[in-house]
Computed example of a mutant assay.
Amino acid sequence: MSEAPILQPSTLAIHGNRVREKQSNSILFPIHQTATYVHETVGVTKGYGYSRGGNPTVNALEQAIAALEGTATALCFRSGMGAISTLCLALLKAGDHVILSEVVYGGTIRLFRQVLENFAIEYSFVDTADLDAVRQAIRPNSKLLFVETPANPTMKLADVAALAEIAHAKGLLLAVDNTFLTPLLQDVLKLGADISMLSTTKYIDGHNATIGGSLATHDETLTERLRLVRKTLGTIQAPFDAWLTLQGLKTLPARLELHCRHAAAVAAWLEADSRVHCVNYPGLDSFAQKAIAERQQSGFGGMLSFELDASVEESLRFIDALKLCTCAESLGSVETLVTNPATASHCDLSSEERAKLGVSDRLIRLSVGLEAPQDLIADFEQAFAAVFGADGGAR
């Protein structure tokens, strides 16, 4: 028997693991908006009993994501934080210790500080770009190394293959939040991670239409443990959100190609402008960890952050003056989105904590969308003019 052909990403996103609805042969898998399912006879179902445990539309999305992750299946959740919370409750118990990237999404920080700490779960925030620091942070009770790379919002990278080697030598599992790049730009499981986590709200959906998350692993026993805990907590993805995400996923490769191209153009323009103090983008030669990005990524992504050569007040006024770039708390969509992390994703941290992590009060995070880069640059120019005067503060 001949092996199945290896599909290219654009084909895989459309056809990989796709299941067809049999009754009408609809080209789109239908929305099974139902809570429960009829038993064919007592104790006999067609694989579904109650939608908290499983749903055909959610399963269709899970199979599509699994095709991208290269796993037998994936599990989808109500949100990215629902996925992370389920992962932690599935793996950890009181007295266990977790090592986390020090620059990590603010919601993950809240989960550990304000929820899991109440259950005697220990944790340490570590510079996961420093391999020696990671080694030194491992304790006898350490169970999980949870890494976000590129980090939100500084774009700081962690060497996934090196961290996997360190974690496995000490019996830890390595989970990677791969939201910024997705498996198409960074295959964390192939690099050695045990668990890939995505906020499907972002690039997988790509249209600001849904909230969702996913987990994928090659470990079938762990998958079933996660499935059990998800069913118990009720954190499964909603059918309509799963259906919308399925449609967005089909264009993911095409969108990522444009996101990368546009972000590179915008980052280069910002870095060359004297009104900009610094730019964080892994595709720039000035980015200190570019070699790691080139080694473990197949693209530099659509995310960047930068600081103006201006005060905090002027930086916030610059954001407010933007017209084409939308100030909103998300990323990875067709629209370019801009935020100030100090007042958004990292607002729960003190100014001292943010400063230690490189998240200054004037830092601006940009999720570059599919608009023409020259139009985005024109929007920056008019915002400069609005804040600094007719010449835009040119130096």
Rank of each mutant, 00 (worst) to 15 (best):
S199M: 06
T221V: 14
L163F: 04
K202Y: 15
L308Y: 07
T149N: 05
F388K: 00
L284D: 12
I211K: 14
D127I: 01
C88I: 11
N17I: 03
A268F: 00
A67P: 05
N59V: 11
R52G: 14
G80E: 10
L222M: 12
K250S: 02
A372P: 05
R227H: 06
Q186E: 11
K250F: 02
S305N: 01
T182C: 06
D177G: 10
G213A: 10
L316K: 05
V134D: 02
T339C: 11
I31M: 13
Q297T: 10
E352A: 15
G70C: 11
C325N: 15
I195D: 08
E165Y: 00
R255T: 06
I109P: 01
I138R: 04
G53Q: 12
F112L: 01
T57W: 10
D205K: 03
A164G: 12
G302P: 03
H259W: 08
E353N: 13
P239E: 15
G301H: 11
A4L: 15
A162H: 04
A394N: 11
L222K: 10
A291R: 08
A344R: 08
S286G: 08
V188D: 14
H168L: 01
I84W: 06
A158S: 14
G392H: 07
T339M: 08
G206N: 06
G283V: 10
E294R: 12
S199D: 15
V266A: 03
G392Y: 09
L131T: 10
A137F: 07
P30Q: 05
Q23D: 15
A66F: 03
D177T: 02
R225F: 00
H168V: 00
G49A: 13
H168C: 01
G171Q: 07
E352Y: 00
E381D: 06
T36G: 09
A94F: 02
A293I: 00
E352K: 08
R261K: 13
E352G: 02
A390V: 13
S351K: 12
E335D: 14
L111T: 04
D205L: 05
A383P: 02
A383V: 05
L89A: 04
G332S: 12
L131G: 02
D130Y: 06
H259R: 02
L363I: 09
T41M: 14
I138Q: 06
L144Q: 11
A133H: 06
L87R: 00
E21M: 05
V103S: 01
G234M: 06
L349Y: 07
A129V: 03
D379P: 02
T201N: 08
A272W: 00
A94E: 15
Q374Y: 09
L316V: 00
L157R: 00
A321T: 10
L181H: 13
I84M: 11
S10N: 07
E314W: 05
E353H: 12
